[in-house]
Nucleic acid binder design. Structure first.
Lengths: 219, 219
DNA sequence: ATTTTCAGTGAACATCCGTGCACTGAAAGA
DNA sequence: TCTTTCAGTGCACGGATGTTCACTGAAAAT
């Protein structure tokens, strides 16, 4: 009984930087877990490191400040968000099944990375200005990427930047709002969950109908 | 130089319950002010009462717990939200100017009661479960009220409950998202602000176009 | 074989926190 | 006039917080 490693397979020696990376991941995961029930502002360094299983001061070997940890969480949260549209894009752009497919992928990704979406939704308007600004910036970029994607779609080729911005921001707002709902504990119950997803699908459809009947703004 | 009352006019004696009510308001106002820069979870009773100008323990003469203070803030925040639709309703329901008028009223109300909207937006997905649930409940009621309002509008008389829910939730999501943006410090600059308001107006218009072309779901 | 690096340790610190308790003094009630 | 009520006071406590500093011991470099 030499040690209590988590790996079941006879664990190989493990590098020094490998071990460091493992602790760093443990910190990020512990933070994501704790942030399900509190906000970043109330997260204390002591309780976090206790959860990880290290001493408080060891935290500083991986992050200079708590804010830096938060920014890392923003980064990886938006990576899973980009995975989302990449997966939507990789499927066929069949115009009629696109909405249903997108909603399906969103719900799946949201289930797999619930903590990331909850973090974004919670800190987007939260008490920490650094995280707020970082999330606002990332969401802005995300919206612009979505706008360029939309520009390629049939029927939208002649739309101006302003029109594309209107539509993209509608979709982003919708996605953020839906994520916020689906992440809450009340959405654990399948009937409630189904109702929320159905509503999301219909909301997206109504927006699409609006886009189809939209009369572009500028010349 | 008897005392330092805030009233410029020779202040009348002031009742006992009047004085209590005044302190209560001072607590609520101090909280709203501090919550512009932190979240409810990080608000400490000591710093709050220091800002008010009373001793920490005096707080308990007005609220049993901090959560109770938060619930009072939820209550009065949603009162200003109800004032909003009441004012929109009180105007004429002229179908063509309705959107512009609504946006205008929203922006005005948002400017007058910025702290209330910020509070709702910040704590809606915040770390405090009691406030989250209270806000979710109030927003649900608000959405249902909006749905019954919409049911009376020309073109929507034959819509089912599900369709009305879709449209109402779209408007609520849009309003919440816009409020969150307009309340942020970057929206202080007039050009940014104008851009946000313009986009909001266009988003609302696109949704209306979608509603106009919507084909009701059930029989 | 020896030295250097460095993730993690453990004690100590000053500061802030919520809350219990006995109190004061003026307004309200008798 | 005398008594009761009660918003606000002042102190004291036990506990949690972030950060400092010198340290240990194994891995990496020499």
């Amino acid at each position: 009984m030499s040690s209590e490693e988590k790996a079941v397979t006879a664990s190989r020696p493990e590098n020094r930087q490998e071990r460091k990376e493992r602790t760093r991941r443990a910190i990020l995961d512990a933070a994501l877990e704790m942030l399900a029930e509190e906000s970043f502002g109330t997260l204390s360094l002591r309780s976090l490191t206790k959860q990880v299983g290290i001493v408080p001061t060891a935290f500083y070997r991986h992050f200079a400040t708590l804010d830096e940890l938060g920014l890392s969480l923003v980064d990886e949260s938006f990576m899973t968000l980009r995975d989302l549209i990449r997966e939507v894009r990789s499927g066929e752009p069949a115009p009629e099944t696109l909405i249903d497919h997108s909603v399906e992928v969103l719900v799946a990704q949201l289930e797999t990375h619930k903590a990331h979406f909850r973090f974004i939704g919670r800190e987007r308007h939260g008490g920490n200005a650094v995280l707020r600004d970082a999330i606002r910036h990332e969401l802005g970029m995300f919206e612009r990427e979505l706008a360029t994607d939309l520009a390629r779609m049939p029927g939208l080729e002649r739309w101006g930047a302003a029109d594309l911005h209107v539509l993209a921001s509608l979709f982003v707002d919708l996605m953020v709002a839906a994520a916020g709902e689906l992440v809450s504990p009340s959405a654990e119950q399948p009937p409630v969950r189904r109702q929320l997803v159905d509503n999301l699908r219909n909301q997206a459809r109504m927006i699409v109908v609006g886009a189809a009947g939209w009369k572009p703004l500028e010349p």
